[in-house]
């Protein structure tokens, strides 16, 4: 993995999408906007990949979709977190924190940085600090 690579880790895209949809139902454009904004532009992904992820999640029954009207008045496809998606999100977040913590322990204190890696200690997995959007 090149140090400068800003592409997303495999498997985390779905986690992030579920997380975004947890706040409110949204169309794909909204999800993309949230991902860009919340990651401070660090996470860079193709919008096509995002849509593929959304459709896969829908096929897996983790999100559901329905056509509605965007603020602009245009017809847009809205995605809503399904109950199964909510459960999955909780599980994924927990496992993500365990992973991140494990990585941090391997790196050791000399590479430690204040920030997200400590959050797992608090136990409730979905309270990762968010940068202001």
């Amino acid at each position: 993995m090149a140090a400068t690579d800003r592409s997303i880790l495999p498997g985390t895209l779905e986690l992030l999408v579920l997380r975004v949809l947890r706040d409110e139902p949204s169309h794909g454009l909204g999800v993309a906007r949230a991902l860009r904004g919340r990651s401070g532009g660090v996470i860079d992904l193709k919008d096509g990949a995002l849509y593929q992820a959304l459709h896969r999640l829908e096929n897996d029954g983790l999100v559901s979709s329905d056509w509605g009207h965007a603020d602009s008045g245009k017809r847009a496809k809205f995605y809503t977190l399904a109950e199964r998606g909510r459960t999955r999100l909780d599980a994924e977040v927990r496992s993500w924190h365990r992973y991140a913590e494990a990585v941090a322990r391997v790196l050791g204190p000399e590479f430690a940085r204040p920030g997200p890696s400590q959050a797992g200690r608090h136990g409730s997995g979905d309270t990762a600090p968010e940068p202001a959007s």
């Binding site: 169309h27 454009l29 849509y51 602009s72 496809k77």
Partner: peptide, 14 residues
Amino acid sequence: AEVDEELRFHLDGR
């Protein structure tokens, strides 16, 4: 058509 509509909405919006 449905997929196109979704993608078009995105591209226009972005």
